[in-house]
């Protein structure tokens, strides 16, 4: 599903070049539930951004669903993200002027699908009663569930989540983890997320530990 071949990423600030990812090689199969862990600045988010086509590697190749994403144009990348990827952010990043229903429907509009049952999905995730509320009327946990629903609604092959439980209390975090696992089983969706949360790492099928831009441990359960 995801293959990284000898990937490097460096940032230049003034004259200073900081190498964040140093020669990463990685393969993640379809349906895997993978956590990337590591200290702050170890490159977790950078890896997710590069897999998601939000950022480009300085060197190396990234294949997602057999597609070399470095070769895609801006517009092609947008289409690729819309059809094949789902994103879950630490800060939820819902569109504040849209209701829960509209936030989810928006993804369907972008990929030009209109027949998905949003209400059924929200029922499954347990926030159907909030369907017509705006994000600022929801708790953090509810917002993140909406974000999960938004990521799932287009039935993408891969979901990338950047610290999805970081801003949630234990109960909400647990609920979000349960939903993600359920969806992964139901649709065989690949989940890759960065996290510090041990509640989450205990639920995953594979842990990649990152240190100084390199994978120092790859634990498969």
């Amino acid at each position: 599903m995801v293959i990284l071949k000898n990937v490097y990423k460096s940032y230049k600030t003034g004259e200073v070049v900081t190498e964040v990812i140093k020669g990463l090689n990685l393969e993640i199969k379809q349906g895997e539930f993978v956590a990337i862990i590591g200290p702050s600045g170890s490159g977790k988010s950078t890896i997710l951004n590069m897999i998601g086509g939000l950022d480009t590697p300085s060197k190396g190749d990234i294949f997602v669903d057999n597609q070399d994403i470095a070769k895609l144009s801006d517009a092609e990348l947008s289409k690729f993200r819309a059809k094949k990827l789902g994103f879950i952010f630490q800060d939820f990043n819902l569109i504040p002027v849209f209701t829960v229903r509209e936030n989810i429907k928006f993804v369907l509009d972008v990929i030009k699908h209109s027949n998905e049952d949003i209400e059924h999905l929200l029922q499954e995730i347990g926030i159907l009663e909030h369907i017509d509320k705006f994000p600022d009327q929801l708790s953090g946990g509810q917002k993140q569930r909406v974000a999960v629903a938004r990521a799932l609604v287009g039935k993408p092959k891969l979901i990338l989540a950047d610290e999805p439980t970081a801003n949630l209390d234990s109960k909400s975090a647990q609920k979000v983890i349960e939903i993600m696992k359920k969806m992964q089983k139901e649709f065989n969706t690949t989940f890759i997320f960065s996290t510090h949360d041990t509640r989450l790492t205990s639920e995953v099928s594979r842990i990649l530990e990152l240190e100084d831009g390199k994978i120092v441990r790859d634990i498969k359960k």
Partner: peptide, 16 residues
Amino acid sequence: IKEIGTLKAIGTPKSF
């Protein structure tokens, strides 16, 4: 800016 970033991440076309 963050909202725009999110829109772009979910594949929203530039024209939109």
